[in-house]
């Protein structure tokens, strides 16, 4: 870990101003940033401690949705009664992630911005385009059991590790960003992330100094909320595949469907065409397969991760079966 200048931010403006120049990083929970700094993968020259900024509230919006402060811990968000009652898929996703200790420290915005768990990104001795642009992707042609089958490029097939973000994607969350110039903006979570393409080291559309101040959840989605995470251990492991689903039945047919996927792609993955396959249809194995066909139309396996196509197909079918039980 390299030496850095430590600055405790007194306000959002103070934080963004200090972050605008040089190699600066905000630190709040620190559970991913310090992990990477210890490995000399993240190398900030300045750390701006935002952990004491007043961004830790969960407030109700006029539209019935929630405004979740960037610093709300994963544990608090999962345990919030409104989230448990109205946005069950989000609570479930959070509870399936990491450990009790990490959820107590990790923040909402930090969770969105956590970096990949690719083996090679985590090993500074080996090439990785995300860590060192132009050095090559070791996962392609290497050990890639945990890697992406969707959205990857010839430069990078690392996956996004978050569970929370997958649920938020299904819920059409937005993020609220404050820039160094003091301008606020909102953007859909889906637009926060960038696919790797030829620049896998650039993961979001945020500019230097941009600070996520909140996540906005729209009004509650009626229907069944399911988050299913498939992993190598019963707990405390990253997803091989995860499915966030909110399905609202309209009599015998599917009235509304929201689906997002983890473990498959460099970003939490939502494909509205998959949802469109379902809407207005009656539940059936054939329909689930059709949805999976749509999801996997562009899928590409790299050997060890080929199984993910089958795994997500079967997991999706099981989730949809459970979610589409006709409400009595």
């Amino acid at each position: 870990m390299r030496p850095f200048e430590y600055h405790r931010a007194g306000s959002v403006a103070d934080a963004t101003t200090h972050a605008a120049s040089g190699a600066a990083r905000f630190i709040a929970g620190g559970t991913n940033l310090l992990d990477l700094m210890k490995l000399d993968i993240e190398r900030p020259e300045r750390l701006i401690d935002i952990s004491r900024l007043p961004l830790d509230a969960i407030e109700e919006n006029e539209d019935g949705g929630l405004r979740i402060g960037a610093l709300v811990s994963n544990a608090d968000l999962a345990a919030d009664l409104r989230v448990r009652r109205d946005h069950g898929v989000l609570s479930r996703a959070l509870l399936s992630g990491a450990s009790g200790q990490l959820r107590n420290k990790a923040t909402t915005a930090g969770n969105l911005l956590q970096r990949t768990r690719c083996y090679y990104f985590y090993n500074p001795a080996l090439p990785c385009n995300k860590r060192e642009p132009g050095s090559g992707c070791s996962a392609i042609g290497g050990r890639n059991r945990i890697h992406a089958i969707l959205g990857g490029s010839a430069q990078c097939i690392a996956t996004h590790p978050s569970d929370m973000a997958v649920a938020m994607m299904a819920l059409s969350a937005e993020v609220e960003v404050m820039s160094a110039g003091g301008e606020g903006r909102r953007l859909p979570l889906a637009e926060l992330y960038r696919l790797p393409g030829d620049t896998p080291h650039i993961e979001t559309v945020l500019n230097p100094g941009d600070l996520i101040t909140a996540v906005l959840l729209p009004a509650p989605l009626k229907g069944r909320h399911i988050y299913r995470k498939v992993r190598d251990r019963a707990s405390y492991a990253f997803a091989l595949v995860s499915v966030a689903a909110v399905i609202k039945m309209d009599g015998a047919t599917i009235g509304a469907a929201r689906l997002a996927f983890g473990g498959l792609a460099p970003m939490p993955w939502r494909d509205r065409a998959v949802e469109d396959v379902l809407i207005g249809q009656s539940p059936s194995s054939a329909l689930w397969n059709k949805a999976a066909d749509r999801l996997l139309a562009e899928a590409k396996g790299y050997g060890e991760n080929d199984f993910k196509s089958v795994l997500v197909r079967k997991t999706l079918a099981s989730v949809l079966s459970d979610a589409s039980v006709r409400e009595i």
Partner: peptide, 15 residues
Amino acid sequence: VNHDLAEYHVPVNAD
């Protein structure tokens, strides 16, 4: 490649 305890999976309590 999995030289840490995140990716070398020893059983956890829930297992």
